[in-house]
Structure formats: structure tokens, C-alpha cells
Design a binder for these strands. Structure first.
Length: 268
DNA sequence: TCTTTATGGCGAT
DNA sequence: TCGCCCTAAAGAT
């Protein structure tokens, strides 16, 4: 289940397993069958991630993958087992295979169509050289809550529901504050933190946001790992005591997504 | 063996 | 704001 760090990790993993070599392509589930037939035997020349969008390059043509909420990618060593009938796209070579299931989209794109996607996405904390100022221009003019702005991929690309909740907690920011009420220093600090957190997310392939001084060990609590694999402050911890102040973590629905925050630590 | 839920996003209303 | 798409694991019965 994907936020931007997952997608950047996948871009690296696809490249490492298949980059520069011809691959067999198939679509057991059928929805990508025509394109898979077209690509079968082509060389994977490039892979790229922007936010939650993954691009697999085959000499000027691109497979555009968006995992959505349910999409999953699974790598394995040859020999590949018979694919489940939900596999949208399987790539395979003599050494490896990779299965894609349940993506929101998987489509063949021209270079121009790919450019259009980049154009509509905001800066990505994981793309070298991406610039937080373009996000600040939108945020500082917006009456929308900072919680909604952080999930808007046109504003920042790659942040999802976990990083949103966690980065706002780490900076003591009330999720309902309007974007234009943030200071530039606050935004700079949030962006810098996202860069560090998400880089670590790519490295570890999971989301860990708890500072060393707040880990259960450091706080004298029993060790615990959240069921998404990492350690967090507030995400999916509704009604549980805040790690720092023990106030019950609050939850609310905002734009059809669950928001989590500590009303005491995140006052303004 | 059900029902629910999930780290997402689109288009219609 | 709502319904809808896609899948699998966890929870309820």
C-alpha cells in the first residue's frame, strides 16, 4: 500500500531487476493484454517515479502505473509460479518476475502524455531538485486546511494519509489551520522533514516517524510495531494515548479520508 | 463465510 | 460530497 516512498522504491526495484534487458510481458487478468503483447520482448530502458506515479520506459513508450489504494507489486526469483488471474501485468526474464495487481491505472503512454502528468503534479520531496517554493505559492494563498493541502497531489506529490498525519504531529501543527495561516518557516520545516522521512521510507521500505527519544524503549513502554510495519505517533491510533502527552489521539473524517491528530500537542 | 477496511483518485452531481 | 474502480487481509459472525 503506497505513498510516494513506496513508488520510488518500486522504480529502483524494477530497474535493478529488469533494467537494460528484454522482458516477457503478459496480462493474465486481461485488462492490459493488448499493450503487454506489444511490449513483449522489449527492453526496459528507464524507470521513474513522481509522487505516487510510476513510469516504466520502453524506448520512448511508457507504462504508467498508479497503485491507488489497493494496488500491489510483488517481485520474485525465477522460476515464476503460474500467475494468479488478478495479475494485471507480469514482467519476467530468466532470473526474475514481477506481478502487478489491483492498480487504479496501468496504461501505455506517449512521452507527451507522460509530460502532462508531471505538469499537473506538485513538487515531490523525493525528486532531487524539486522545489518547495512552488508548493508554498499555493499553500500561502489558500484558505483550505493544511491537512487537505498536504493530500492534494497538485500541491505536493507523494504525501499520503500516513505522512500527512505524522508530519503535522512532528511540527505541532493543527491539521485544521488554513494554508495561508502557515508561516514560511513552518512550511520549510515541514518540507525538509518530509524529504528526510520519505528518504528513510524508501531505504527501509516502511514508514517510521517516531524520534529516537520517543520510542517505546526510550519512554519506558513495551515495544510495539504498528500493523503497517513502522512506528508512528498518531496514524490509526484513535483514542490511544499520545506518546508524548498521553492525551487521547483524535480522529475525524476529512474529504473521505481519516485524519488523526493530538489535540494537545497540535494546538496551533 | 460473511463484512469491513485500507498508505488513492476520478468523474458526476 | 458521493459513488465508483481495483484487491486482499483482518475482523466479525
Amino acid at each position: 500500500m503506497p505513498e510516494g516512498h513506496t513508488i520510488h522504491r518500486l522504480a529502483a526495484d524494477y530497474r535493478e531487476r529488469f533494467g537494460g534487458r528484454p522482458v516477457r510481458a503478459s496480462s493474465p487478468q486481461g485488462k492490459f493484454a493488448d499493450a503487454a503483447a506489444l511490449l513483449d520482448g522489449a527492453v526496459l530502458t528507464d524507470t521513474e517515479a513522481h509522487g505516487k506515479h510510476l513510469f516504466l520506459g520502453f524506448g520512448g513508450e511508457w507504462v504508467h502505473i498508479h497503485l491507488g489504494l489497493f494496488g500491489k507489486v510483488n517481485f520474485g526469483d525465477a522460476p515464476a509460479p503460474p500467475p494468479a488471474d488478478t495479475v494485471r501485468l507480469r514482467l519476467a526474464d530468466p532470473r526474475s518476475y514481477v506481478d502487478l495487481r489491483g492498480p487504479t491505472s496501468c496504461a501505455l503512454l506517449t512521452d507527451g502524455e507522460k509530460q502532462a502528468i508531471h505538469h499537473r503534479l506538485g513538487p515531490d520531496p523525493l525528486r532531487p531538485g524539486d522545489d518547495p517554493d512552488s508548493a508554498w505559492k499555493r499553500i500561502s494563498r489558500s484558505r483550505t486546511t493544511v491537512a487537505a493541502l498536504l493530500l492534494d497531489q497538485k500541491v505536493v506529490a507523494g504525501v499520503g494519509n500516513v505522512y500527512r498525519a505524522e508530519v503535522l504531529f512532528r511540527h505541532g501543527i493543527d491539521p485544521y489551520r488554513a494554508g495561508r495561516d502557515l508561516t514560511r518557516a513552518e512550511w520549510t520545516a515541514i518540507w525538509t522533514d518530509l524529504v528526510a522521512l520519505m528518504r528513510e521510507g524508501v531505504r527501509e521500505n516502511r514508514i517510521d516517524t517516531v524520534r529516537p527519544e520517543h520510542t517505546p524503549e526510550a519512554m519506558g513502554r513495551p515495544p510495539r510495531v504498528d500493523d503497517h510495519g513502522g512506528e508512528v505517533y498518531v496514524y490509526r491510533r484513535a483514542n490511544l494515548p499520545c506518546h508524548i502527552c498521553t492525551t487521547p489521539v483524535r480522529t475525524a473524517e476529512l474529504a473521505a479520508r481519516n485524519l488523526f491528530w493530538c489535540p494537545s500537542c497540535q494546538s496551533r
